[in-house]
């Protein structure tokens, strides 16, 4: 009763899978494009002197970290259009959801990076007459970003994994395509195995790179003065 594998059906549909992969990368990339700057912005609000501003940013972060991404996606896809009487297609809903969601996580990465920079660096900048903005742009952020790269890569991996949720609102990402092909060919075993492998071969090198960088940064000890 051994199962007869047949990968031919998968390869016959390689164009559909490729399209799915491109769509997956598209949602991931565009969400990052919005999510990272938004995350920096939220982190700066979180670090603001004003308690009121800082707390609001905190609530934003906590809310999006403490609700499931799929619920957020559904809310934006099903609820937003009715509330504002607008049409939102699955692609836009995904971009909105993942930009906001990842920004909450990126904000935490930025914040951790920035507070890891010694206070003396801020003071040295101020002491030569720099404004807060100049110190951030020229002194502290460049140092923080270097330390944040592994955490960034990790977040990117998580984001890409999370984009599979868009299949639940029928956006044709890699998983959605797989499901489609599996249903048409009655070969879910082959299709889902191949698709899992496709995800693996995109994500694994990224994770290896993230760990390598982390180790290198740990070894170099991030030598600041003193």
């Amino acid at each position: 009763m051994s199962y007869e594998w047949d990968f031919a059906v998968v390869f016959q549909n390689y164009d559909l899978l490729l399209l799915g992969l491109i769509n997956t990368l598209n949602v991931t990339g565009v969400s990052l494009l919005f999510g990272i700057p938004l995350g920096l912005f939220v982190a700066l609000l979180r670090l603001a002197d004003s308690k009121w501003v800082s707390r609001s940013a905190g609530i934003f972060i906590e809310f999006f970290r403490s609700t499931p991404p799929l619920v957020q996606l559904f809310w934006i896809f099903f609820v937003l259009p009715i509330l504002f009487d607008i049409a939102i297609d699955p692609y836009s809903a995904s971009i909105i959801a993942f930009s906001i969601q990842s920004s909450a996580f990126f904000a935490e990465v930025f914040r951790a990076g920035l507070i890891s920079i010694d206070r003396g660096q801020w003071e040295a900048g101020y002491a030569i007459g720099m404004t807060r903005k100049q110190v951030l742009r020229r002194v502290t952020l460049p140092q923080a970003v270097k330390r944040m790269i592994p955490a960034f890569l990790e977040r990117i991996i998580e984001l890409m994994k999370t984009t599979t949720l868009v299949s639940a609102i029928s956006y044709s990402d890699l998983l959605f395509q797989a499901n489609d092909i599996a249903q048409q060919t009655y070969r879910p075993l082959e299709v889902f195995s191949v698709v899992a492998a496709m995800y693996f071969f995109v994500l694994w090198p990224t994770s290896v790179a993230a760990r390598g960088l982390e180790r290198r940064l740990a070894v170099s000890g991030e030598s600041t003065a003193a």
Binding site: M160, T164, V191, F192, Y199
Partner: peptide, 25 residues
């Protein structure tokens, strides 16, 4: 560890739901 950390959990769930039954009959 590498396989399960570097594939989306939704793909894993779908695999167990649609693919594994065929393998195990």
């Amino acid at each position: 560890v590498e396989v399960f950390r570097n594939t989306p959990v939704l793909v894993q769930i779908m695999w167990f739901f649609f693919a594994l039954p065929i393998l195990l009959q």
